[in-house]
Design a protein around this nucleic acid. Structure first.
Length: 311
DNA sequence: TTCCGGAAGT
DNA sequence: ACTTCCGGAA
């Protein structure tokens, strides 16, 4: 093997002339890829909804949730007018997790209507102003809606770059490598393609030959057989966790508009006892956090506190 | 039990 | 820099 991966000023060993690598990946993607309905639209609102949902959930279930969501709130304007409680309730009833993000999406829709007069920002910097839109989502929406993004860096992209071109496990290295590799003006197809590569060929357990990976001839891991991937932090256990309890609170309040603490408690923990370790005091702390997050309202009536979803 | 993962808050 | 936020599937 000769010096086709000559070192440049980039970290790792990106090809000095990336055009062959770029063409191979785009051709591979265009020849065949998974079909998702959000790949058929360039509406920034629809794209944003799909991005926020698919950060957290298996794509097959996102399809149904995405279609239901857009049936119910087809535009940013309709979502902005919705009650917060309905959006959070939708999120929970579709098992989408992280209901904070339902709140963010609702708020972002409000920003587009109020601050931007319904006119979506068309570049990553502008999109980053929207609530809940960070670097990844800003570039994804700019790319898929406007073909106007920078290279996305998600864990798929990191894994691919780490393996193929020995990019060190470092956020700024990934960002500059991803950026150097992206063909100018082709963010829509490119970001789709490189994430598709990470999703179907270069997963944790790679499937280079089965998926006909277009980068085998340049790939460091394919050459050496070392398919180590960057460390991903392991999740704390979900069962019994605070996030599980928060989810139960939201579900219960969606089902019953308003509940007193002692009615809510047993729906959150079977071992709820008003004076026990997991009693009113504990539940109140949980609800205060949810109220701080803007998800729940607490009404301290004379007859004991009641909770409901935030309007 | 492990995997998957971007954004905000502190 | 570190923690919190969710839940289904493999």
């Amino acid at each position: 093997m000769t010096d086709q991966s000559a070192a440049t000023d980039q970290p790792g060993s990106l090809p000095a002339d990336p055009s062959a690598v770029q063409d191979a990946l785009v051709a591979w993607y265009e020849a065949d890829h998974r079909s998702y309905p959000w790949r058929e639209t360039t509406d920034p609102y629809e794209i944003l909804v799909s991005e926020v949902m698919s950060q957290q959930t298996q794509l097959d279930r996102v399809v149904d949730a995405w279609e239901d969501f857009l049936d119910r709130w087809p535009t940013a304007a309709t979502l902005a007018e919705a009650d917060r409680a309905d959006v959070v309730g939708f999120w929970t009833s579709h098992s989408l997790g992280y209901n904070n993000r339902a709140k963010y999406l609702h708020e972002a829709a409000g920003q587009v209507v109020e601050d931007y007069d319904g006119e979506w920002p068309r570049d990553p910097d502008g999109l980053s102003e929207l609530m809940g839109v960070g670097p990844y989502t800003a570039n994804a929406v700019a790319s898929f809606a406007f073909n106007n993004g920078n290279a996305v860096v998600d864990t798929n992209v990191k894994r691919v770059l780490y393996r193929a071109f020995d990019v060190p496990d470092d956020d700024s290295a990934f960002e500059s490598a991803a950026s150097a590799l992206m063909p100018e003006g082709q963010s829509r197809v490119w970001n789709n393609a490189i994430m598709e590569l990470g999703g179907v060929a270069c997963e944790k357990t790679p499937d280079c030959d089965g998926a006909q990976c277009p980068w085998r001839e340049w790939c460091s891991a394919y050459e050496t057989g070392d398919f180590t991937a960057p460390d991903v932090p392991t999740q704390p256990e979900f069962e019994g966790s605070r996030r599980q309890m928060r989810g139960r609170v939201i579900s219960a309040l969606k089902e019953y508009d308003e509940l007193r603490l002692d009615q809510l408690g047993p729906r959150v923990r079977v071992d709820y006892a008003p004076q026990g370790e997991y009693g009113r005091e504990w539940l109140r702390g949980l609800l205060d956090d949810l109220a701080d997050d803007g998800l729940v309202e607490i009404d301290d009536g004379g007859d004991g506190a009641t909770a409901r979803l935030q309007k």
